[in-house]
Design a protein around this nucleic acid. Structure first.
Lengths: 229, 229
DNA sequence: CACTATAAATAAGA
DNA sequence: TCTTATTTATAGTG
């Protein structure tokens, strides 16, 4: 790449203006300005990577970033909303509470919240099918399976006084909870045999030559920067 | 970086076993197997980048990936759901369906945005702390659980106990989780103040058709799942 | 913001 | 999977 480094002794060919990239630890950057710059650069890089993944493999994805300043950046293919919507639905996160709320206060979302119910029903039906298959499979597993502390801390659990939990505990709790829930769902997904409709992807090429822009994370109004593929 | 290419003529120093990385076009990969491998690698890379961005800049983000096979992969800090919820709702997650708690925080959503900003920042910082705790905890569990992924660092894998669960358990489990999560979220809502964010969506214009009708369901590594930060 | 030297990610192979 | 050779991404600087 660089003769100056390849061949010692001739590094005086030209005065270099940079000491080059340095390795950094992955820990919170203290210096405000540096952190800001890094945020910009890396967010751009992340979006680019996401875009490439989309194009190369034909998958659909979304990236949502909340800057420390509260600004929201999003990238999605075919669109952030579509992906998010599917995630929310497919994740069964919807309980009475949620769907209730979405129909009333979600003025910003232009997505199909009306079809949510339908999708949910589909999912549930699917789930039943999946469950049956799981039942069959379980028998096989049973043999290999053994005393596995399946209910590692926190499973069995829940009725405790949530109201009294401290914030830390609560959030930690929620966190692991969400993770757990996902595992369950993924497990179910693994057994789904259904094939989804071939995805007709909408998208543009990679147009990230200018996503950077001004990433002022100070304060001010909360304009959301949303990128659609 | 390679003398063999830098200096013609001495490329016989040693026979290498690989031709190394080649430049590729960012265009849908035709070959099925290659596409899957790429999907795996790049998805992992994307998640890692996302994780680094979180840690380095203290931002919150989520990455949702829908493989062509319909599988969902997600990464989020503090959790995919939290980020998604905030993206979708834009406002306080949901005061609409409170149970027994007083609706003390619902009003704050209409307060001055600068005030909210401050609270949000505090909230974010708090989450960072919490997540770090969680990370430690995870690591511990990881070690106890298994250490087969010595090379797969930075990316936590899910625990397989779920795999072994029986259907009934699974179903009950999921049910409880959903219910519990609702409770936790309700409680959490009283502790967090979100800002309303405009949801501007830029749709994309060009369409590109998906090549190859085989949307095989085999994308990605085994039921990997949600990564927490 | 442009640039350079270096660190990382990753396309091909085995 | 694991390795290797390259291509990319970027930390530091001007």
């Amino acid at each position: 790449m660089n003769l100056n480094t390849m061949i010692p002794g001739i590094n005086t060919i030209q005065k270099k203006t940079s000491k080059g990239r340095k390795k950094i630890e992955i820990k919170t950057i203290e210096k405000e300005s540096t952190r800001q710059v890094t945020f910009s650069k890396r967010r751009t890089g992340l979006f680019k990577k996401a875009s490439e993944l989309c194009v190369l493999t034909g998958c659909q994805l979304a990236v949502l970033v909340h800057s420390p300043g509260g600004r929201i950046f999003a990238f999605g293919h075919p669109s952030a909303d579509v992906i998010v919507d599917r995630y929310v639905n497919g994740t069964v996160t919807n309980n009475a509470c949620k769907s209730d709320e979405s129909s009333s206060s979600s003025l910003s979302s232009s997505s199909s919240s009306s079809s949510n119910q339908k999708v949910m029903n589909e999912f549930n039906q699917h789930y039943v099918k999946v469950s049956k298959q799981l039942e069959i499979e379980k028998r096989e597993r049973e043999m290999i399976e053994e005393s596995k502390d399946a209910k590692n801390r926190g499973v069995g659990w829940y009725d405790e006084s949530i109201e009294e939990m401290k914030v830390d505990e609560l959030e930690l709790y929620l966190y692991s909870l969400v993770e757990l829930k996902r595992k369950v769902l993924l497990r179910a997904d693994d057994l789904m045999i259904s094939r989804k409709t071939p995805n007709l992807l909408m998208g543009c090429s990679n147009l990230f030559d200018h996503v950077g822009g001004n990433d002022d994370d100070g304060m001010g109004p909360p304009p959301a920067g949303v990128f659609g593929t």
